[in-house]
Design a protein around this nucleic acid. Structure first.
Lengths: 351, 351
DNA sequence: AGGTAGTGTGGGAGCGCTCCCACCAGTGAT
DNA sequence: ATCACTGGTGGGAGCGCTCCCACACTACCT
């Protein structure tokens, strides 16, 4: 507060103007050099670079942001409480990917949690102030108002996992359909034929796609689709337990289960144990996510791995293009930028 | 890039000027209302607030930063690779504390990892550009150049755990000395008397303080200090194992061990098992940190808990004062702002 | 010779705010 | 009545950049 007058004059940070004077060129030229414009002669560029080095010039971000109407920052918005963020390896892998895509960029990453209503209100305010050039959205539920808010504010965004087949936002997702097929085909190749599926929350698009994958793999194998072998879960342990119990009741002769998540598989395992079934001897089990749970389960769980770090990287690349390409609304959204990454089956002793 | 001309004019975000016009007051008055200055009459304030609401005015951060020479952001700098950040609950607790202290503030938090040389270079550049008003430094090693860089750039900083007794930066620490005393006194109260200590890395000030606490607790209990009961560790599992083995060799009659960290205790436990000692029957064991390791050890480990979340909160409060108080250099650093928080012994079955 | 592109460059204008000085009442002391 | 003050207010100046227009100056056509 008190430093306003004293600021900058003596000993403060050098400005563009001072660099220009030192190099014997105009302000515009220095700006061009700093921003890597090609329209500068080599000699001039060298002179400016020398002046920059001598003066230890560092551009003032605030001034740049004001003049250019951009912030050089993007946000990774996590609509979850911090606790979950730290608990699930999903997020740390994602963060790693984002970080690596950003590492040779001037772009800064902001990590924003929006788990509570209060945090969400803060976030809305934050976005309204246009404090970031773009947003990375992970783990978004189908009814989340955030994507609409972003669209309304005209802030570029990329979503990890489309909300539906009609998703309008650019997105990066893993191949849920293909992953499910891999899982089922794996079970069939092990000689199983009575393969059940415990789904995820069906308001999550990815969960639906997994069901599609299950259905088609069964049908392509000539086994037909017995709807009685499909039971709805909700990605939780409890849901998996309940679903498995229901399935066993209906079809005591089940010899394999594909669960829509590792946590679900863990619940299914408990129900199987309670029913006296051995894994994998009596019933083979496959999960999804290849999380720590899969590795530590007894027996270790075969699971479908998603390339999460890679997804983070791709999302970031997409967003950066999106931010750079900002163009008149008319030409936006015409070409949909959506990306699907392959999954990989990690085979362990549960199948 | 191409939007410069079109920006703002039609349909863009409202500016201070527009709010002023709407409310029928001057620019200065609106600024005063926005910034909560008391020098505004109630009537005027109400009028301005109405105009702000009608127009949906949100201040432009970049303009404010440029004019006021501040950023309204602070950084939490973690001089570790991201992997460790996610692996250790220390950081997530710290983050939670910082977040809570910031939650009713306009201040924004930036999370910056500076594990690799490359990241450190980026950070230096970042700080040189004064993109944050202050820095929170956690887990800093004694020879880290970062604090000096910050001092040179005149960026307010708070450190978690002073680097020495002569630490010049404001700091928040837990009471390492007192925590060590608690641990030792607990062991003595359980009837043990041949209490050994495995230290942490002695170039970490906190580790030294723990040794001090051990020494004085022993000496105050009238047991004297046998230097042979002190063995240097380095906070690692391997170090704990080696140190414990050495101690047993020297003093086979040891009946209790205070280890400078839970990880160290875990190594010590292994050495004790290998030597056929039972815990706690033959040798009682106490660790430090009360981490997940302590809870999951077999047997569960008695450990000294540091109030990490609280430390994060206090650090943040300190930094905010520091940032707000920015004043002529002369009066700085005269009063040292250093804070020590009490620890708590969590008793489990290892002792 | 005169035109017509293209390069490279300087500097004005303006981004939206904060700070501060000037000013205008009103109030109470002289 | 005159002179401080004081609470309240308007608006100029300026923060350090980017954008863009204008102006050289060259080189290559007709």
């Amino acid at each position: 507060m008190a430093t306003h007058g004293a600021r900058g004059r003596s000993g403060g940070r050098p400005t563009l103007e001072e660099v220009a004077a030192r190099a014997g060129v105009g302000r515009g030229t220095v700006s061009r050099v700093i921003n890597g414009s090609p329209r500068v002669s080599d000699a001039t560029r060298a002179a400016v670079e020398a002046a920059v080095a001598e003066l230890g010039y560092v551009p003032n971000t605030a001034a740049r942001a004001l003049a250019a109407n951009r912030t050089d920052a993007i946000a990774l918005v996590v609509p979850e409480p911090e606790t979950r963020f730290f608990a699930e390896p999903y997020f740390s892998d994602m963060l790693k990917g984002v970080g690596s895509a950003l590492s040779d960029t001037e772009m800064q990453l902001l990590l924003i949690f929006a788990g509570s209503d209060r945090e969400r209100a803060r976030l809305a305010q934050y976005l309204a102030a246009h404090r970031v050039d773009g947003v990375l959205l992970v783990s978004v539920h189908a009814d989340d108002p955030l994507p609409d808010l972003l669209a309304q504010l005209e802030i570029p965004a990329v979503i990890s996992g489309p909300r539906s087949s009609a998703e309008t936002l650019p997105s990066v997702d893993s191949d849920n359909y293909g992953g499910a097929r891999q899982a089922v085909e794996h079970l069939l190749s092990r000689g199983r034929s009575r393969v059940a599926h415990i789904t995820g929350r069906l308001d999550v698009y990815g969960a639906q796609r997994r069901v599609d994958g299950y259905r088609e793999a069964m049908s392509d194998a000539g086994l037909g689709v017995d709807e009685g072998l499909i039971e709805a879960g909700d990605f939780t342990e409890e849901g998996g337990h309940r679903a498995m119990a229901a399935l066993l009741e209906r079809h005591p002769d089940i010899d394999a289960v594909f669960a829509a998540s590792d946590v679900t598989a863990s619940g299914a395992r408990r129900a199987l144990r309670e029913a006296g079934r051995r894994i994998p001897e009596d019933v083979a089990l496959v999960g999804y996510d290849d999380s720590a749970i899969a590795r530590h389960m007894e027996p270790p769980l075969t699971s479908v791995r998603q390339p999460i770090e890679e997804m983070g990287r791709r999302m970031t690349d997409l967003l950066l293009t999106e931010v750079a390409d900002r163009r008149p609304l008319a030409s936006r959204g015409l070409e949909r930028r959506q990306m699907v990454l392959a999954t990989e089956l990690v085979s362990r002793s549960s199948s």
